[in-house]
């Protein structure tokens, strides 16, 4: 009986210590993510149990679909967020400024990450996120691993002949990527030259593509649209990419969800396509 009571007291002490610890923890315990790549990063950092809500677009990893939904990437439901009682909301460049302002006025801490412009920014943002949620060591390890992998690929592709690439991320109007986006780093690290690198915005004309005559065209849109686009390109027989049958359809999710790890993985895939035609 005595033993039982001691056990009980011990249990209570541990329970109390635990709750006291979690109260005094300097790191957020109830996080809401407003962007798919933020959600993915939080899972990578191993804090998924602290993630209490995300957007309907957050589908990777599959477990994220089970989390409470607070709206889309561009249109969030403030009422829903408020009732979930978060202590940190992580917004993206696509979150509306009015909404962020409102959340702050309601006394909720909001951190906003801008769209990463290159691989370096992907890593530094990931480290920053790790620091905020108290997993800097894990973030550091992941970034180190990704940097190593990317470095190896870079040294491999350095001596290979450069490949001219046009990358299509939207149709009607034809939309591509200039060097304002980390997607440009994919191309350069993989030993390619982005023909639209110096374009002012993403809108690009078909005429300019014909004139630049890229070796490879990559279509990164989803579903039937991509096949249709491929057929359209195939009408222009003068294109080197058409002559050599080098138009590829690429998973847009992989290209546009920038965590350090997925960057390295996607880069490897791209190198295979560009240089080994796989």
């Amino acid at each position: 009986m005595k033993k039982y009571i001691i056990l009980q007291i011990l249990f209570l002490v541990i329970l109390f210590a635990n709750s006291a610890l979690s109260i005094s923890s300097p790191y957020p315990q109830r996080i809401i993510s407003l962007g798919p790549y933020i959600t993915e990063a939080l899972y990578l950092l191993g804090v998924q149990d602290k993630l209490i809500g995300c957007t309907v677009y957050c589908k990777r990893p599959p477990d994220a679909e089970k989390k409470e939904k607070v709206g889309t990437v561009i249109q969030i439901n403030i009422e829903k967020i408020l009732t979930l009682k978060p202590d940190l909301v992580i917004a993206t460049a696509l979150t509306q400024k009015k909404d962020i302002e409102k959340l702050k006025k309601l006394g909720i801490k909001v951190i906003r990450f801008s769209s990463p412009k290159n691989f370096f920014e992907i890593c530094s943002q990931f480290l920053e996120l790790g620091r905020i949620v108290g997993r800097y060591d894990i973030a550091e390890k992941i970034v180190q691993e990704a940097e190593d992998r990317v470095g190896q690929i870079k040294s491999k592709t350095e001596n290979l002949p450069k490949v001219k690439i046009f990358i299509e991320i939207g149709t009607n109007p034809l939309f591509t990527i200039n060097n304002d986006s980390f997607v440009n780093d994919f191309i350069e690290f993989a030993g390619g030259i982005n023909i639209a690198k110096d374009a002012k915005t993403g809108i690009y004309s078909r005429e300019a593509v014909l004139k630049e005559n890229p070796d490879v065209i990559i279509i990164a849109t989803m579903g039937i649209v991509a096949d249709k686009e491929k057929q359209i390109w195939e009408k222009y027989k003068t294109l080197k990419a058409v002559k050599n049958n080098r138009i590829y359809i690429f998973d847009a999710y992989k290209l546009c969800s920038p965590t350090p790890i997925s960057f390295a993985e996607t880069l490897e895939e791209l190198v295979n396509i560009l240089h080994f035609k796989r």
Binding site: L94, K98, E101, K105, G202, I203
Partner: peptide, 24 residues
């Protein structure tokens, strides 16, 4: 809209659609 950056574009479209969620 045709010559602006993607992020600005989104701001413009949302403003044009109209909303009553004014924080001020």
């Amino acid at each position: 809209m045709a010559i602006s950056h993607i992020q600005d574009l989104q701001g413009i479209i949302f403003w044009i659609m109209g909303s009553l969620a004014e924080p001020n």
